[in-house]
Design a protein around this nucleic acid. Structure first.
Lengths: 214, 214
DNA sequence: GCAAACATCCCTCTTTCGAGGGGAAAGAGT
DNA sequence: ACTCTTTCCCCTCGAAAGAGGGATGTTTGC
């Protein structure tokens, strides 16, 4: 197989080391070419518009704009964009949102070049690429109902350690309403209490607990 | 400067892409040489013993044995081992434990080669390498009292969403005792409730919320 | 040897949670 | 038009949480 022109690739990841690794792995394939590198979501969208690569390889967790934001930004201007998500590990919610936003494929960072390279080629060819284990987790996720925006807001307040009364003040609603939202949250996540709700939500990628250091 | 022999390096990280990046960045320096690669903590200790490199570059979050376990394993047999920790982001507790276990340096994954390479050379030379921001966070941490092993156990139970009564049964202690531990935890972490205790502990790297996917 | 830290147990009392009901208004989709 | 979802409000009540006290045995450090 001798392709006329190489597959052009944009990579986006906030870690220099990871970008270096991606370049090293990708450049070892003669038909693949990294044409741009971004270190955050906003830059990724900008560089996509400038280079319009065949494939964009995006990390989900990035500063400024995260991967999902970047996908939406890109797809707004280039609906046919072929986007492959590359992430370390991630809850079902992340995966679901990425695919809903228009990602064509999903690869775990733990995968070797044997997992990554075929994924790039598949997405470049217009196909989809979802590993078996990721696909099966999506099936599990659909068993849970999605939280509404307001419920996620309340959940974030809960994660901050605020009491219902405080949350009510923050969101300018009554404590009764906070409790109602909480009831819905507990039901949808199928958990027993607010603390478990927070850990379950973090696990599934619905909310994040920011690290002290980035 | 023309070194007689190159600095030999062991790298350990569970992500293939990151290992590739490290190799690419390190091999571009003529006086540095990657002599072994490990994908988990146990393997890191094993390969250290076999190759006895000048520097071991370890990620903290790895399967089987984490970075801190690996540091202890290595330092038990090779107390003079020169270990450099490389991590994506991490709570103060992680950093503190790593340095206590005998790491000589600490580098963030977001740093470029300009941050990594000098760190490797410094540690290889027997020096220490702690970035300014990391050092300042350590000062902050020392304001908090460390949790005891038992308190961490209780905290993990709390993070699982269990009620005090359930925790008492699990740990075979009375509910009163659970409440006592909780009181101590809240005091030490300087937080108001159990939910905030969990998020604060996760932020500081005291406990982890395992992701759905690895 | 003795103080300090640890882990365990006990009690009271107030506040907060969360399950159980109920309902109403606005907007989106059919 | 009608239904469904979302967001908001209200009520009661038992259980859980957490602040406040005090106490004992055991290890660990100095």
């Amino acid at each position: 197989m001798t392709p006329r022109s190489r597959i052009s690739i944009l990579i986006a990841d906030d870690h220099f080391i990871v970008r270096s690794g991606l370049v090293a792995v990708i450049q070892s394939e003669p038909d693949l070419l990294v044409v741009a590198q971004a270190s955050d979501g906003a830059q990724a969208a900008e560089l996509y518009a400038r280079h319009q690569p065949d494939v964009a390889l995006l990390d989900l967790r990035m500063p400024i704009k995260n991967g999902n934001d970047a996908i939406e930004l890109i797809r707004r201007d280039f609906p046919q964009a072929r986007i492959l998500v590359l992430t370390a590990y991630s809850g079902d919610e992340d995966i679901h949102r990425a695919l809903e936003a228009g990602a064509r494929g999903y690869v775990l960072k733990s995968s070797t070049g044997d997992g990554l390279i075929p994924a790039i080629r598949a997405v470049a060819a217009g196909d989809h690429w979802i590993p078996q284990d990721v696909a099966s987790r999506l099936a599990v996720r659909s068993a849970y109902e999605a939280l509404t925006q307001r419920e996620i807001e309340v959940l974030r307040e809960i994660a901050s350690g605020r009491a219902n009364k405080e949350i009510a003040q923050h969101l300018a609603i009554s404590e009764h309403t906070v409790k109602d939202h909480l009831k819905n949250i507990l039901g949808k996540l199928q958990v027993a209490g607010r603390t478990e709700a927070v850990t379950a939500a973090v696990r599934r990628g619905i909310i994040e607990i920011g690290p002290v250091v980035k």
